[in-house]
Design a protein around this nucleic acid. Structure first.
Length: 421
RNA sequence: GGAGAGGUGGCCGAGUGGUUGAAGGCGUUAGUCUCGAAAACUAAUAUGGGCGUAAGUCCAUCGAGGGUUCGAAUCCCCCCCUCUCCGCCA
């Protein structure tokens, strides 16, 4: 959520940001409501001030045993006016709040303007040579042959997009998670294991609601949401709190399953592990000083990249253009791993800065020791990494000519075997 | 799920209709003292909003939201949360 003051004072800039992101521009309505609101506030506060001093007089009179009936009867009308104004104000505040939630975050100046994925900027591509003496198969063929993933029983037990991982592949998944968490730990991230269902306020805090309700599974009876990413519970950890400035930056890592309805996304992209309704992910979340957040975005990105490098997977980094980056971010990098078996790039991480867009919603602040003022922290997060597509790339990249899967070097210490098959 | 108790500032805690935005304590910050530190003493110390160039001023806020009243931390309604006991349970 943007500050109404920013919208009021930097309307042109905000409007340009909305346009760049192809979002709906409600600024005129917002500014109009804001003006009406302030007019009413002026009137009602004048009345309240009157009331307060009258009440003080009543108190004085009563204490000295005199009658205050005159004042009291006069104040009756004031009371009714105040109630009317307050009622109006309540309606306006609610409407204004709703409209403010429709204003997207403003892209950072370093972000390329664009509408389509083609306009994202490739800022890095690894030069690993992936030449192989034989033709690499897509991961689902290998997994089927070695009986490592059971999609059919997953469909029977739950539904499409909820596979079972079997035997050594289940162990490899666990090993990868450990590798990711251990790496984060070495880089100073504090590991936390959060709840995987959240309440409405939390979903609202990180921006899943309103706007993206359809993304999440709901537990209607208890008014809870299954998390689409650990970002939601972890970012909300400090909701409505004041963080000690000296503790910043705070860095968390969290492993969770993630649940996404992915309504309406069917077709060839959903083959194998490419797109699931439930998947594992290790997420990194940072709370930082405002002036440090872009620096922290770069280290966040390189922390995620490091994992791909150590797994010796080919990947590239995209700087997302304004139209392709999402509602809440100011700047976002996507990491895509190369799937040699499928001959295409798969997104395995996205690292974003939200500046104070989320922290304003979540009310997470710190006291600036120089100005002595309260300020909102900046929040950032990034996947490091999402498991299924990494798994797909590993299976494909590490397949042997006779149809087995080698275990990547960095993972071997986590497993009692170094080949599957 | 049932019964009871409770939710007050960064923290603890007083306060049951009228200068209570809120006593007192702790903490924090600054100053005095000290070679320095500690202790002691002195002072300052909520957030958000409206108007204003500013100084300032007004309004709101005692878990959230409604209500009663000239006036609510205090009374009523509803919701949320915490604790204790019982029940259920890995």
């Amino acid at each position: 959520m943007l500050d109404i003051k920013t919208i009021r004072e930097e309307t042109v800039k905000v409007r340009a940001g909305i346009k760049a992101k192809n979002e709906v521009d409600n600024l005129n309505e917002i500014l109009e409501l804001d003006e009406t609101r302030r007019k009413i506030i002026q009137q009602v506060e004048k009345l309240k001030s009157e009331r307060n001093s009258a009440s003080a007089q009543v108190a004085k009179l009563k204490q000295s045993g005199e009658s205050a009936d005159d004042i009291i009867s006069k104040m009756n009308n004031v009371k009714i006016s105040i109630q009317e104004f307050d009622g109006e104000l309540r309606v306006i505040d609610k409407k204004l709040e709703e409209l403010l939630l429709t204003v997207p975050n403003i892209p950072h100046e370093s972000v390329p303007i664009g509408n389509s994925p083609e306009e994202n900027k490739i800022v890095f591509e690894s030069k690993i040579n992936l030449e192989s003496k034989f033709t690499l198969k897509p991961h689902w063929e290998i997994a089927e042959k070695l009986n490592l993933i059971d999609f059919e029983r997953g469909s029977k037990v739950t539904g499409a997009g909820f596979p079972f991982y079997l035997s050594k592949l289940a162990m490899l998944q666990r090993a990868l998670i450990n590798f990711f968490l251990d790496s984060a730990n070495l880089k100073g991230y504090q590991e936390i294991l959060p709840p995987i269902v959240v309440n409405e306020a939390s979903a609202r805090g990180t921006g899943q609601i309103p706007d993206k309700e359809d993304l999440m599974y709901t537990v209607e009876r208890d008014e809870l949401y299954l998390i689409p990413t650990a970002e939601v519970p972890v970012s909300n950890f400090y909701r409505d709190e004041i963080i000690d400035e000296k503790k910043l930056p705070i860095k968390f890592s969290a492993y969770t399953p993630c649940f996404r309805r992915e309504a309406g996304s069917y077709g060839k992209d959903v083959r194998g592990l490419n797109r699931l309704h439930q998947f594992d992910k290790v997420e990194l979340v940072k709370f930082t000083l405002p002036e440090k957040s872009y620096e922290e975005l770069e280290t966040l990105r390189s922390d995620a990249e490091d994992l791909l490098n150590k797994l010796r997977l080919k990947y590239r980094v995209l700087l997302m253009c304004t139209g392709d980056m999402g509602f809440t971010q100011t700047k976002k990098y996507d990491l895509e791993v190369w799937s040699q078996g499928q001959q295409k790039w798969l997104e395995v991480s996205s690292c974003s800065n939200f500046e104070n867009f989320q922290s304003r919603r979540m009310n997470i602040r710190f006291r600036n020791s120089i100005t002595q003022k309260m300020e909102f922290v900046h929040t950032l997060n990034g996947s490091a990494l999402a498991l299924p597509r990494v798994m797909a790339a590993v299976i494909e990249q590490y397949q042997t000519e006779d149809g087995k899967i080698k275990i990547p070097d960095v993972i071997q210490k986590y497993l009692p075997f170094n080949i599957i098959g």
